[in-house]
Amino acid sequence: MNAQTITFKESTQKKQKPKSDQLGFGQVFTDHMFIMDYTEGQGWHDPRIVPYQPISLDPASMVFHYGQTVFEGLKAYLTEDDQVLLFRPEKNMERLNRSNDRLCIPHIDGEFAIEALKELIKKDREWIPNAEGTSLYIRPFIIATEPFLGVAPAKHYQFIIIMSPVGSYYKEGIRPVKILVENQFVRAVSGGTGTAKTGGNYAASLKAQQLAGEKEYSQVLWLDGVERKYIEEVGSMNVFFKINGEIVTPALNGSILEGVTRNSVIELLKHWGLKVTERRISMQEVKEAHQKGQLEEAFGTGTAAVISPIGEFLWEEDQMKINNGETGDVSKRLYDTLTGIQKGTEPDPFNWVTKVN
């Protein structure tokens, strides 16, 4: 299967594009979408780019009843010389297939998916915003479409890609966010679906997120689901701590999402010669480092926000302010470098960017 097999139906009703300075996140969508079907015995077939539209599903479609769905998130960027770049899309497709495996969904051809994505971006290229801090957010996802009320892997699926011009994920932008450490609820445990990017993980996090919002905290920091003391990740980000010169991030343990930005940050820190360690780290250790004045920085990493400095944790009514609530030097350097590579203004020694045109 190659790009020439993708059929195209152009939208006859083009939408009005939002102004770059008025972009939120994931609220407005481009004129077209990509769809491909899966049928047991036939495999993935009928790849097509069509006008963005509602999808029609049988009420008994298994995605509604048993949550068999996975998704990804990546971005396209417009450079100063009008090129379109993707950041490590092959990593997203590799992770999508790992999620597929966990949810018993048939693998997709990652190379073909990237080619299909490139074709979709070319059709809606004019939707890519060029203002500072903006990009085109891309959401590939797969849903089980077979109408069957039985608990078993479905025999029919759809792979869909939609796109949305976006600004900053957090209203704070690169300004530090406040994070509430969750003690009551559990998001995932080793052996569960925590390493898969599947809707149920996020549905399970909403209650804690709602309660955090009521206390005016941007996100929740999840602890392990067994002992409730070891740090895992923030709701939409992996998390890093700079403690007495060492940068520490929780080791992947079977319940933490393997972030593409997380991996990129680790490689970049090592490239700079900074000490970075993947290991188990408890909230108590972070508290003690804060008390000793050794908690120098904390930040989250993810496709949506790229780098999000953390200015405060609240854990068991203990308020921990970090770096006087200001963005730290490492966080700022990482943000500037990663966004620079993504936008083509910084050197790319790792060959992370893929040109679309």
Rank of each mutant, 00 (worst) to 15 (best):
L120S: 02
N244M: 02
I179T: 14
L180D: 06
V181L: 06
G192H: 08
K122C: 10
N244A: 14
V166F: 12
G73W: 05
C104E: 03
A116K: 10
L74G: 04
I121Q: 08
H290S: 13
A76K: 01
F148W: 05
V260S: 00
T354M: 13
I243N: 00
I310D: 02
H45E: 09
L334E: 01
I341E: 02
L338M: 10
R280L: 14
E111L: 14
T12E: 12
D81G: 05
G344F: 10
K17H: 07
K270M: 10
Y66V: 12
G191E: 12
Q184P: 01
G340K: 03
Y170Q: 05
K155W: 07
L268K: 08
D329Y: 08
G24W: 00
Q13P: 01
S331A: 15
L221R: 04
D318Y: 11
S56C: 13
E126F: 09
S236T: 15
V63S: 05
D21Q: 12
G110E: 04
E115I: 03
D82V: 02
N323V: 06
L334R: 02
M33R: 02
E119L: 15
I108C: 03
L120C: 08
D224N: 13
T354R: 12
S255T: 11
V186I: 15
D336N: 14
E312R: 12
R139V: 13
I243K: 01
I256A: 03
N244T: 02
T69P: 00
V276M: 08
G173P: 10
K15Y: 06
N97C: 08
K270F: 03
L206F: 11
W44L: 11
K275A: 14
A304N: 09
V151L: 14
T301I: 03
L211V: 11
R139E: 09
K123W: 00
P59W: 06
I138C: 02
Y217E: 07
